[in-house]
């Protein structure tokens, strides 16, 4: 966990409203694990006040380059989209826990909307172990699916959109369930909107497949200090766990959906 100023190498629009920001961060690249996130200071005059969390989209130890992938959602991300090569970005990280790669399993990665952001790094890590991953990407419409070509480097990609403009016209659970029916030895890794994750959790339970989900909650400190980002868990000792420190990755069966 470090705080540093990272030099931006490139900030490229890769889909409508979606940006891929690359920056120099050798220490982060060396330390970050798939599923972890960073908090970036999106400086404006007065607002936003707090840092904004983003999953580590990619980290390359050799070049020392890290990436985030973000969608313009409000003021902070709008300011971030205006930064360009040569600018310095104030970053804290790596933060949170990471996905545990279930060795020997057939890996099913499921990303919905911007939930794909931390999953590229995971897909690469699984690919590096030499094991196979199936990557399910879903969005409202074709334009929202970013980074498709890069995902394809790390496994078979199965696409679905709500309007049918790319891949199958359905929600992510349709192709996912089909795959789970024929694969008894799968492990699920998912990130996306809450309703999607609840659905993936239900599928995981139905097919007795270990399921890890990466959650989002508004947060302040990002490191377990302020108790600001609770998620309700099925646990005798405590009602809540913190997304920033105990997560963002949780076992789906531990969450009160």
């Amino acid at each position: 966990m470090k705080n540093f100023k990272a030099k931006i190498i490139e900030n490229k629009q890769v889909a409508p409203q979606i940006y891929n920001l690359k920056f120099e961060a050798p220490k982060l690249a060396a330390e970050a694990k798939p599923g972890q996130f960073v908090e970036a200071l999106c400086k404006g005059s007065g607002a936003p006040f707090l840092r904004r969390p983003f999953g580590v989209h990619m980290a390359d130890t050799k070049s020392g380059v890290c990436e985030i992938l973000f969608r313009i959602a409000g003021r902070g991300t709008e300011l971030l989209s205006q930064m360009s090569a040569g600018d310095f970005l104030d970053i804290t990280g790596p933060l949170g826990n990471d996905f545990e790669i279930n060795k020997g399993k057939k890996h099913f990665i499921a990303g919905g909307g911007m939930g794909i952001a931390p999953l590229l790094f995971l897909a690469k890590a699984i690919w590096q172990t030499g094991e196979q991953a199936k990557i399910f990407l879903a969005a409202k419409t074709a334009a929202d699916i970013a980074r498709l070509d890069i995902f394809k480097n790390f496994g078979e990609v199965i696409l679905s959109t709500e309007d049918g403009s790319l891949g199958e016209k359905c929600l992510i659970d349709t192709p996912l369930e089909r795959a789970l029916k024929t694969e008894q030895n799968a492990a699920l890794y998912a990130c996306g909107p809450r309703p999607m994750l609840r659905c993936v959790a239900e599928l995981g339970a139905k097919y007795q497949t270990p399921t890890q989900v990466s959650l989002e909650e508004k947060m302040a400190c990002g490191m377990g200090v302020c108790q600001g980002c609770p998620v309700e868990v099925k646990n005798k000792d405590t009602k809540y766990k913190m997304v920033c420190k105990d997560g963002p990755v949780f076992n789906a069966e531990d969450i009160v959906w």
Binding site: G46, A47, F49, L50, E217, K218, G228, C229, P230, V231
Partner: peptide, 10 residues
């Protein structure tokens, strides 16, 4: 109960 944090000007 969450959310517990929100950003406001300054």
């Amino acid at each position: 109960k969450p959310p517990r944090i929100t950003d406001t000007p300054y």
